[in-house]
């Protein structure tokens, strides 16, 4: 077992084995494919353009992590489930060069992006041409890949877009909030990969959904207890 697999949680979904990794990626060994969603590369530059002082280098760091996880998992394909960029980059943004360099080091890797709402056409033209773009959705084995979650007759949908997070709090005072892999009846939503992205609290179905929480050292399935939506005082 690789170190990637030993740090991951192995689950079974539609008779396929999947590894959920605490680095907020999912590996599908049968298809030798690593999935990530919502990278939002270049977000700090959008801030910088507005005169808001966010340090550079955040995106380089995020991309570096993504490709390292690719190496560790042994994936031959890397699929980003939408929102790879935050906004159309200017051609001088440093992470574009970092991306090319990372691809140079891995000539055998096939990288695909399912277009998300942030991935403008101009963005697709600006970044490294070795990356293949899928406009709407594509079928991969038993799965349908799309940015936005929903029901698709063609198969079980893998998606992103929501940046799902959950607060697990079984008792008075104790609780922990973290991003989650959200598996529903017809689709799964992956947590956002980018480090400079927030999370959205989801409202899962107690009876049908499964939640896998991504902590800093492991992924754990947590029970869905009815959320206390507000506290009385």
């Amino acid at each position: 077992m690789s170190s990637f697999e030993s740090r991951s949680l192995q689950i079974c979904c539609h008779e396929e084995v999947l590894f959920l990794h605490p680095g907020r990626v999912m590996y599908w060994p049968a298809g030798k494919t690593l999935f990530a969603a919502d990278v939002h590369a270049g977000k700090e530059h959008v801030f910088a353009r507005s005169g808001i002082a966010i340090p550079g280098g955040v995106s380089e760091h995020v991309l570096q992590l993504l490709f390292e996880l690719c190496d560790e998992s042994g994936a031959e394909h890397l699929v980003v489930l939408g929102d790879f960029v935050h906004s159309t980059p200017t051609s001088s943004e440093s992470w574009l060069f970092a991306l090319s360099a990372l691809l140079d080091e891995r000539p055998a890797l096939d990288m695909r992006i399912i277009t998300g709402n942030h991935d403008t056409l101009r963005a697709q033209e600006t970044i490294d041409r070795r990356i293949r773009w899928t406009r709407e959705s594509e079928i991969l084995g038993p799965f349908v890949l799309r940015h936005a979650p929903g029901h698709d007759e063609r198969g079980y949908l893998l998606s992103g877009h929501l940046h799902p997070a959950w607060r697990f709090s079984p008792g008075r005072r104790q609780g922990i909030r973290a991003p989650v892999f959200w598996f529903r009846q017809h689709y799964a939503v992956l947590p956002a990969f980018g480090s400079f992205t927030g999370g959205m609290l989801i409202e899962p179905d107690e009876n049908q959904d499964r939640l896998y929480m991504a902590g800093d050292d492991c992924v754990i399935q947590v029970p869905i207890t009815p959320a206390r939506r507000y506290r009385k005082r």
Partner: peptide, 27 residues
Amino acid sequence: ESLNSQTISSQSFQQRIQGMLDSLENA
């Protein structure tokens, strides 16, 4: 008082979640 409590922990994410799961089970 149960509002605005904070948690300080030197345990890992795994240990903490596990602890909470155990307490849920006990309950």
